[in-house]
Design a protein around this nucleic acid. Structure first.
Length: 488
RNA sequence: GGGGCCAUGGUCUAGUCUGGUAUGAUUCGAGGUUUGGGACUUCGCGACCGCAGUUCAAAUCUGCGUGGCCCCA
């Protein structure tokens, strides 16, 4: 931590891996010293961001008719193993609690369908109970065998899971579309993380789903990171839990279920990575724990107290005025010199800094520093709350626009293996016509995985893209347009 | 799933090849001088990842474990 032009010697663009590790540590987002593989401590700065994310996401869910619940973290083995494809998909990753006595072993939930549906079997009796839309904020556990990475792939992560039940398949499919819309409205339009909604190929859907739509985002190193996914649960799954209801005509029917799982800790990884620069974090105004940091200068004359206390009254008023407008503000009146405070809060990603000293008191205008553009502007003290709010909105729009710009040129149209490989090697997503997203395509996807070390992400869920020509892998007639990328 | 690199005060690091109780910086605590973009100074606290082995003697050599990072499939 010597004197450097930037806070980091590491460039985000040239050496993303190291930048990422470094930033989590320096900005006090996580601490890896807990010493259990795949389990990280999330520190206050990280936890406060995640808390704001949760609130925003939960209010979006409430607004679309979801209610909260809190389910146990353990699932009895019998419930967990009721649906065969689900077992097959998740069993390898489950942590089992061996020491608990009882008929059933207990699983630490890797996801909670088998907990929710056990209760839905009881709760759902009649068509009047539908739709039932319940979510929970939860930590879930998966015994990842692949290399773990803090926030990106941990063995414990923090998400929301919404489990919805509908009377008809049509209603359920509309919910899937609604979920994608919510991802767009929250993750993209508030958090500034762009993504592509991809319908997963049959061989890559959620275990126990009829189909899965994943939101694929991209990291600065060009790797794909799967963000919230949403699933239409298969009827075999529903039947395994014997969830049924009586319709208007007194006929017994099975409901259609969906689930949606936005993962706060993983979205945070995207937020930090997409927006940050070589001076540290750049947090969206909406979710920054501190939105405005006030740094008072000490008075220049000999009459005042040190550490800016000479401007104390004015600073107190500014703080109160901002707080009255629900702006998160902190005054850094510690003994550090101003320069050190500047670097520190810039590194932490705080959007705005107000500098105030005697000069400003006289003129009635303070300096406002803007983290992303590094501009300094003059703002009259009485207009501060209003101006900060406006600047905050512009700030987030700018972050989103910048992220979109980065994301914009990532998709490259490809015709054959060579162009696909070239696109992938330069950190892009390849788009090409492909034989099939049904089971027949699995072999070609395996080729893509083995030979090109990329994952077939699926087909666009929001567009109907027409295939042309032949599959570049097997040479059969192409039926779908798929996207592929190197993946986390 | 396969391969490689690494582990020394809170953090970063020298020492490891060639075995003899550990270097420097920073942080932290106390004091002084400072405060408009990472101040200076005095004093102080603080470490060899764990277990086993070899040895008179292990941070150093060997094995196993744990954790971190990177690459490939």
């Amino acid at each position: 931590m010597g004197k450097k032009k930037t806070t980091f010697n590491i460039s985000k663009i040239d050496n993303f891996s190291e930048w990422y590790s470094e930033i989590l540590n320096k900005a006090e987002i996580t601490d890896l010293r807990y010493g259990v593989k795949g389990f990280v401590v999330i520190r206050p700065w990280g936890a406060r961001i995640i808390d704001k994310m949760y609130r925003i996401y939960e209010s979006a869910l409430r607004a679309t008719g979801h209610d909260p619940a809190v389910f146990p973290a353990v699932i009895p083995e019998g419930n967990f193993k009721r649906e065969s494809s689900h077992v097959e998909g998740f069993a390898p990753d489950v942590f089992w609690l061996e020491s608990v006595k009882g008929d059933d072993k207990l699983a630490l939930r890797p996801t909670s369908e088998t907990a929710f549906y056990d209760m839905y079997n009881i709760w759902i009796r009649s068509y009047r109970d539908l739709p039932m839309k319940i979510y929970q904020r939860a930590n879930v556990f998966r015994n990842e065998t692949k290399a773990t990475r803090p926030l990106i792939r941990s063995r414990e992560f923090h998400w929301i899971e919404a489990h919805d039940a509908f009377a008809t398949k049509k209603d359920a499919e509309e919910q899937v579309q609604d979920d994608i819309r919510m991802t767009e409205e929250v993750m993209h339009k508030i958090f500034g993380v762009p993504f592509l909604p991809m319908k997963r190929p049959q061989w890559d859907k959620f275990p126990g789903a009829e189909y899965t739509v994943g939101a694929d985002s991209i990291m600065p190193d060009g790797k794909i990171i799967q963000q919230p996914s949403t699933h239409l649960i298969s009827q075999s799954f529903v039947k395994a839990f014997d969830v049924k209801f009586v319709d208007e005509k007194e006929k017994e029917k099975t409901p259609w279920l969906t689930c949606y799982g936005p993962c706060m800790s993983r979205i945070l990884a995207s937020i930090l990575s997409v927006h940050g620069d070589d001076n540290g974090l750049i947090l969206p105004y909406t979710i920054s724990p501190i939105q405005v940091i006030v740094v008072p200068f000490s008075p220049r004359d000999d009459s005042g107290e040190p550490n800016g206390k000479g401007v104390g009254d004015a600073v107190d008023k500014i703080r109160a005025d901002l707080m009255a407008e629900y702006i998160d503000v902190k005054v850094d009146d510690s003994d550090k010199r101003p320069g050190e405070k500047f670097f520190f809060w810039e590194m932490k990603g705080v959007p705005f800094r107000i500098e105030i000293g005697e000069k400003e008191l006289e003129s009635g205008e303070v300096i406002v520093f803007i983290r992303d553009t590094k501009e300094k502007i003059s703002v009259s003290i009485k207009d501060l709350p209003e101006t900060i709010k406006n600047l905050g909105a512009e700030y987030d729009e700018r972050l989103i626009a910048r992220a979109d710009e980065f994301f914009g040129d990532k998709v490259v149209d490809c015709k054959d293996k060579d162009t696909i490989k070239k696109a992938l090697d330069s950190g892009k997503i390849a788009r090409f016509s492909f034989c099939s997203a049904e089971k027949e395509g699995a072999e070609c996807a395996e080729y893509v995985e083995k030979e090109l070390s990329a994952r077939v992400m699926g087909t666009r869920a929001d567009l109907n893209e027409k295939a042309s020509g032949k599959c570049p892998i097997c040479g059969k007639k192409a039926s779908v347009v798929v996207y592929a990328g190197k993946s986390y």
